[in-house]
């Protein structure tokens, strides 16, 4: 009998491949949607806010999201990685 043409009605369905949810167990957070920006020469929070939001005046949003690494919104360092909320 050709099993492909006449599948067993009792066949136990394949539970499927390893899911993405499982990947999160291996360490890296598979659901992390954080956007990061690495500060380049000549950049300011205003410019970064313009790049991501179109409006430089929204720079406090970036500053607030990075208070753990930024003490002063006017002082950011080249190579610093900032969260973009």
């Amino acid at each position: 009998m050709d099993e492909k043409k006449n599948p067993d009605p009792w066949a136990i369905p394949d539970i499927g491949p390893e899911t993405d949810e499982k990947k999160s167990e291996s360490g890296a957070d598979a659901f992390d949607a954080t956007q990061w920006h690495e500060v380049k020469k000549g950049e300011t929070l205003w410019k970064i806010a313009e790049q991501y939001y179109g409006d430089g005046s929204l720079y406090p949003k970036i500053f607030d999201a990075n208070r753990d690494v930024l003490k002063d919104p006017n002082r950011i360092n080249i190579g610093q990685k900032l969260r973009i909320p």
């Binding site: 598979a30 956007q35 939001y53 179109g54 909320p85």
Partner: peptide, 26 residues
Amino acid sequence: GLSSGMPRVVEAIKSRVDILSQSKKL
């Protein structure tokens, strides 16, 4: 996995949508 991960994704989207909604220029 989904119930611990998805709310953070949704929160990230909501945060960005809120900020862009306040933007004078996109």
